[in-house]
């Protein structure tokens, strides 16, 4: 399974050049059964990443472009009256897919945002009094643009908490950029991708992640981190218990990606910036922001 997952990462890396670390994080997030928020400027490959993952894992893929006039029904689906049968029939919305790309999620109204986020949390959609399960695996990649905040509805903290990780892609380095410029058209390459894993294998991998050993010593460490966030003078509020579970799930997935059946503190440290970055607010208004800046404070916590 470990080799299979590494093949996924290698294949994705052949299209999105120089971004192995974000790809790994994205796969870890998927394995941990969480959802991913990508916050970055346009054109750095957010959409491509979603496409590549869908193709490589053989997942049914839908993309929803969020706009201010998007309604919940546009995502979830709507019941339409059919004259032949004389009754209402439910037309499932684009959310009924295994991998959703919710593009520019902060452009939609809070009502529409919460329709998506509820579906993410519950893994089901309730419409017209009927509850319909979403497919399994179900993975949402939402993107948002940190610039151009005019006319957007920034996600409140409680909604941000539902994303297991938030990552940034960033510009490629000079070497990768060169290869990108000199290489073939990425869209052509996308169409040629062959799945490396089946969805069933992915579900199996997700089950294995949950079985990865976490020792008491490691739980001590996770607890120390949570405790620190709650008493540190650098943050307005501490991490929630859900954040603690997310941290542990992410660390387990990270350990599995690295071929281990137990978690070491380094796994926690690797996913920590992306798990806590969007959940904590720093007290100090000025100074460095972003995942790395938030995570840097946690260097004060000793590994037990």
């Amino acid at each position: 399974m470990h080799t299979l997952l590494n093949q996924v990462i290698t294949q994705a890396g052949s299209i999105i050049l120089g971004k192995e670390h974000p790809i790994r994080l994205a796969v870890a997030c998927l394995l941990a059964r969480g959802h991913l928020l990508i916050e970055d400027l346009p054109g750095v490959g957010k959409t491509t990443l979603a496409h590549v993952l869908a193709s490589t894992l053989g997942l049914r893929f839908n993309r929803i472009q969020f706009t201010s006039d998007l309604l919940p029904a546009d995502i979830l689906g709507v019941a339409v009256y059919e004259r032949e049968s004389g009754e209402f029939r439910f037309h499932p919305g684009p959310i009924f897919a295994q991998l959703i790309l919710a593009d520019e999620v902060n452009r939609a109204t809070p009502k529409t945002q919460s329709a998506l986020l509820e579906a993410m949390e519950e893994h089901q959609v309730t419409s017209e009094g009927e509850t319909r399960p979403l497919p399994d695996p179900f993975f949402v990649i939402a993107t948002q643009n940190p610039a151009n905040q005019i006319g957007t509805f920034p996600l409140p903290e409680s909604q941000l908490d539902r994303f297991l990780m938030r990552i940034e892609l960033g510009y490629p380095d000079a070497q990768a950029e060169r290869a990108l410029l000199a290489g073939r058209d990425r869209r052509d390459m996308l169409t040629e991708l062959r799945p490396v894993m089946t969805p069933e294998q992915l579900v199996q991998a997700q089950a294995q992640v949950r079985a990865i050993t976490v020792s008491p010593a490691l739980l001590d460490y996770v607890q120390a981190l949570l405790e620190y966030s709650r008493h540190s003078p650098h943050f307005l509020t501490g991490l929630s218990p859900r954040a603690g579970l997310a941290l542990l799930a992410g660390a387990r997935a990270w350990a599995m990606l690295h071929g281990r059946d137990y978690v070491v503190p380094e796994d926690v440290q690797a996913v920590l910036p992306h798990v806590v970055g969007h959940r904590l607010q720093q007290v100090q208004a000025e100074g460095a922001r972003g995942n790395a800046a938030v995570a840097a404070w946690f260097d004060e916590v000793a590994v037990p």
């Binding site: 070491v264 503190p265 380094e266 440290q269 946690f298 260097d299 004060e300 916590v301 000793a302 590994v303």
Partner: peptide, 9 residues
């Protein structure tokens, strides 16, 4: 060893 440094690092 820095206090926050894990054993592998």
């Amino acid at each position: 060893r820095a206090p926050h440094e894990g054993p592998r690092d």
